[in-house]
Write a protein that binds this DNA or RNA. Sequence first.
DNA 1: GATAATTGTTATGGACCATATCAAATATCG
DNA 2: CGATATTTGATATGGTCCATAACAATTATC
Lengths: 169, 169
Amino acid sequence: MTVSKAVEKSGEATRSRKDAGDSPAEALHLGELSEQLGYVLKRAQLKVFENFLRCVASLQLTPAQFSVLLLVEQNPGRNQTEIASTLGILRPNFVAMLDNLESRDLCARIRSTNDRRSHILVLTDKGKAVLTRAKKLVATKHEARLNELLGAANRDALIAMLSKIANEF
Amino acid sequence: MTVSKAVEKSGEATRSRKDAGDSPAEALHLGELSEQLGYVLKRAQLKVFENFLRCVASLQLTPAQFSVLLLVEQNPGRNQTEIASTLGILRPNFVAMLDNLESRDLCARIRSTNDRRSHILVLTDKGKAVLTRAKKLVATKHEARLNELLGAANRDALIAMLSKIANEF
DNA sequence: GATAATTGTTATGGACCATATCAAATATCG
DNA sequence: CGATATTTGATATGGTCCATAACAATTATC
């Protein structure tokens, strides 16, 4: 079948031109797309990041920055390579990120005395304070919204399944 | 507490320098990160996209391109703006995407006779054939892997929760 | 002690995303 | 009707994120 014939078979001629009778321009059918894991996953991720940004807007933290602060707090004495790699961030790209956090006095690089190539990462006092406030905001606004939407049990099941996918897919 | 004092309290001095006794450089603790919805969601999404790309590598289709083909097939007679916006793609960015698909003869733009501003999108015969093959690959390789990992019931529950998040968060 | 590997860094290019702007076509309204 | 506004596809452009190569300083290996 040619393209020109295909267009005749489509419902185009009857609907376009701003819907002659002012009918409400019906929404498109997602079809199999709404069952595609990747599609639904991506859209959910965008919404969650968007919501996260709003919830911690007062602290000016992105999800990635939040994850760095959390990981540095949880793992004192680690260097840039270690922190970056466990977050899936490539070392070159981690440099600008740290420059940012350091310029805002949220964390600091400290030359290691054992291996003078590496920089040990530490949270500053301000960084600890900001992280504490961020955790609170995330818990009371962000995660609370999720529980409200799914219920605690479903939330746990969701996280478990996503972790499984992230680790074993 | 100052930064210099903080580093003394960290476990740095005892572990760095390639772990004196060749001990296996213990993995970092994710801590609260493994419970963060956004973190786990993002990592799962990356893995799923990665797997998708491998599964349909023979057809050279990205998840975004696959979604365009699916949506065009499901909604004949729609124009660029309609297809792009339901996929969350901005019109300017959709142009290059279509240029690509059209240059590969997978879909075609057809000037609408009703509204000569708009381009109706249609799958070519080759586009239909490729989409059919892609669906088969996705079903037998990609989605099958998901079922194997979670089971059909859990898979459905996961998709449902992600849809809910994507639509109502 | 010569060579290899590691760490942080810079430079660079690609992919994706967002905004402003434009010409052509159409819609709206006096 | 005709002037003005809106819509559509397109271009240009800038930002962010991601990936690779290369480099100097330092350390490991042989």
